[in-house]
Simulated assay, not measured.
Amino acid sequence: MEINLISESFWGNKKKISLWDRLFRRSKTVNKALSTPELISKNCRGLQLGNEKLKSFLFSTDMALIENNDSDAILAVYPFPPSPKIIKTLIDFAGKPIVCGVGGGTTKGKKSVEMAIYAEEAGAAGIIVNIPFENKDIKKIREKIAIPIVATVASSDYNFLKGKIDAGVNIFHVSGGAHTAKIVKEITAKFPDFPVMATGGKSLHNIEESINSGSRAIVLSPPSNKDLFKTIMNKYRRAF
């Protein structure tokens, strides 16, 4: 189904499929209802997780949105304690790499270690911890799992970042609001070879800024089901 989103949303931009791909590719390229912007696949360097190079992450645990989006991977984070049932369901369902949230300001210590171990055993491509998560707990997780640890950060302070790297973090996820691109640029200047991904913001300009600043992958927040239904229902009301 074609969903025409509000004009200022980058989700409304459909990817162009070349004539060659349409005619000759055995595995046909399919335009999903929520297509990620082409500038990500064209301009991002990509993050290596396992055997895959990932450039776009959908920030969602909604199965309908995951099914109808063509991002490379899923960032499964939610404002509740991590759930084994949710972790296993998303990994089995998505058909693409999942990075699972296992802790932050509320969930920490032994519980986070247990969830990280479970996520790895269930097939997660990586785990992610939020800004308040303590380095001592990152070290405990690092001792128990082999998959990458991602840490969300909103600062470019050298000692803060170095502490996380020393604790075992493999990737920084920058979520700094309007300052995201600036923080990415400062981190990549201080740690030139360290992988960084960034929240994409609300516009193509925000995404482009983060990529140009050194982000190797972009995290995209999809429109809500409420907003999608509002667009569809407005169309139906006008038609009928």
Rank of each mutant, 00 (worst) to 15 (best):
T61H: 10
S56D: 04
V169T: 05
R142C: 01
A239K: 15
K16M: 06
P81R: 09
K108G: 09
I145D: 03
N170R: 00
F133V: 09
V102S: 03
Y78R: 01
A122F: 08
G168F: 02
L54N: 06
I74C: 02
V102H: 06
I87F: 03
I74A: 02
G200A: 08
L90Q: 02
N31R: 15
G105T: 02
A151M: 09
D92W: 03
M115E: 03
S203W: 03
I86F: 01
I87S: 05
K226D: 13
I3F: 14
N69C: 15
V129F: 00
G126P: 04
V99I: 13
K230V: 13
A178W: 04
P132M: 02
I183A: 04
F93S: 05
K235N: 12
K110L: 12
G126Y: 03
F229N: 13
S221N: 13
A33G: 09
F172S: 00
K136D: 11
A33E: 15
I86T: 09
F93R: 04
D92E: 15
K140F: 05
F160K: 04
D72P: 05
E2D: 15
C44F: 08
V77S: 00
N69Y: 05
A125R: 02
S224N: 04
S83F: 04
S215D: 07
G200R: 09
V113H: 06
E2C: 12
T36V: 15
V102Q: 04
R238W: 07
L34C: 08
E208P: 04
L47D: 02
E52Y: 08
N130Y: 04
P222H: 01
L228Y: 01
K139T: 09
R25I: 02
S7A: 13
K190Q: 15
S155D: 00
F59N: 09
T152Y: 00
M1V: 13
D166S: 06
E209Y: 09
L90Y: 05
L161H: 05
A154K: 11
K202I: 11
F59E: 03
S56H: 05
P81F: 10
D166Q: 09
S221R: 05
K32D: 06
A124G: 08
N4D: 14
M115A: 07
K185G: 15
N43C: 13
G201M: 01
G176Q: 06
S71N: 10
F80L: 12
E143N: 15
D21R: 14
E209F: 07
S203Q: 02
I40D: 07
R216P: 01
L65E: 00
N68F: 07
S210D: 10
N68W: 07
M63Y: 03
M233E: 13
K28L: 11
S7E: 14
G101S: 07
P84E: 10
R238Y: 12
I3E: 07
P79S: 02
V77F: 00
S112G: 15
V113R: 06
L34E: 08
K85Y: 08
K110Q: 12
K96M: 10
G168Q: 07
K136Y: 11
L220I: 08
T188F: 11
G176V: 02
D70W: 06
N43H: 14
Y236W: 13
V30Y: 13
S221V: 12
K15P: 12
Y78M: 00
N51A: 13
I6A: 15
I117Y: 04
S215Q: 11
K202V: 10
R22V: 03
S41R: 13
S9E: 12
E209I: 07
E120T: 08
D157P: 00
I117P: 02
T107P: 01
L5K: 06
A154G: 12
T106H: 11
